[in-house]
């Protein structure tokens, strides 16, 4: 049985200029102990999907569909019931760790806060002991001397470790990490990703890793969903998604990110032409069709369903028959 089962999640946000269709009919499951990646560019709806699940949308947003977690639909829960689940069973790690921490509260207190809140510790002394343990678990050196420090005394990487320690404090079943390493340097990113994977294995948690970086998911996740313009366009286990992508957008993305290990010679990258879609005025048909080299008339009018194209491999593309390795090569001449 899956730990989280999201079905037909659709999120709208009202703004002064109109309604944004930020998430459109997204369904996926996350298994126990699995690391599930959601990749997409800005505006693809990846962060909004997570926020909708956790009930963290602002007042102008509304989500429909269902998100089953442990037999309860998170989308229909009352806010105080949701409060009990957030932090306790599902924890969130955000991109900007430095601003996720309260600048005037000591590190130790912030790590212990959720434990105290959910009544997992009986005394302050116990909370402190558990905080110290968590700090060493996430690789913060000299825990005794640093537990009473303030966030500004920590580097960005160390702040992210503190945030992770706080997220772990209630032994959640699921951690949602929204671009947890985007603000970090590449050598620190490497450390933090390793830490997350190691902790996930150790505690048997599930992890949803949201990122724009194909490299990060390839190295971290077991299964990946690719989002574009609010829709989930492809979902598969990591190996088959990267080896045999079945959606032109995924193929284009893999084609246009620079590879470090290939000898590039004078070859040019093959960019995806055009710009990401406008969420105010969603296109009819496939949302990727204006940028897709395979688009035909059907793509412009029919919204493709998410179909299982191979075992466990889902794709939202009508042109499965003509998908080939070099669909983007002819395109490069134009771009």
């Amino acid at each position: 049985m899956s730990l989280l089962d999201v079905r037909n999640l659709t999120t709208r946000i009202a703004t002064s200029r109109g309604v944004m269709n930020v998430v459109e009919d997204v369904s996926f499951t996350v298994q126990q102990g699995e690391c599930f990646g959601i990749v997409g560019e800005s505006g693809s709806g990846k962060s909004m999907t997570c926020r909708s699940i956790l009930g963290l949308l602002s007042k102008s947003g509304s989500a429909t569909g269902a998100a089953w977690f442990e037999g309860q639909d998170l989308l229909t829960l009352k806010s105080d019931a949701l409060q009990q689940i957030r932090g306790r069973q599902i924890a969130m790690i955000v991109q900007d760790a430095a601003s996720a921490l309260n600048p005037v509260v000591r590190i130790g207190t912030q790590i212990a806060e959720a434990m105290m809140q959910h009544g997992l510790v009986s005394s302050k002394a116990e909370a402190r002991q558990r905080s110290l343990k968590l700090m060493s678990k996430v690789g913060i050196p000299a825990t005794e001397s640093r537990i009473d420090d303030y966030p500004h005394q920590f580097s960005g990487g160390m702040c992210q470790r503190v945030v992770i320690a706080a997220a772990l404090s209630c032994s959640p079943k699921l951690i949602i990490a929204d671009e947890p390493t985007t603000a970090l340097d590449v050598t620190i990113q490497d450390q933090i990703l390793r830490l997350l994977v190691a902790l996930q294995a150790e505690f048997g948690m599930s992890l949803i890793l949201v990122t724009h970086d194909m490299g990060v998911v390839a190295q971290t996740c077991q299964r990946v969903a690719v989002m574009y313009g609010g829709e989930l366009v492809e979902m598969a286990d990591t190996a088959s998604l990267f080896r045999t992508p079945r959606h032109p957008y995924t193929m284009g993305l893999l084609n246009c990110v620079p590879h470090l290990d290939r000898d590039v010679g004078t070859a040019r990258l093959r960019p995806i032409p055009g710009a990401p879609p406008d969420l105010m005025n969603p296109l009819a048909g496939c949302r990727f069709h204006p940028r897709c080299p395979l688009a035909n008339d059907a793509c412009k009018s029919t919204r493709p369903p998410l179909r299982e194209v191979a075992a466990g491999h889902f794709s939202r593309c009508l042109r499965q028959d003509v998908l080939g390795k070099d669909i983007w090569n002819a395109e490069s001449a134009r771009a």
Binding site: V186, L193, M214, A218, R243, D261
Partner: peptide, 22 residues
């Protein structure tokens, strides 16, 4: 730096962190 950079390659899982410390 080269070791630490993530690659879109599902087969690459280096065992050791690229570099320790901050």
């Amino acid at each position: 730096l080269l070791r630490a950079a993530p690659r879109p390659d599902p087969d690459r899982h280096p065992a050791q962190p690229a570099i320790a410390g901050e």
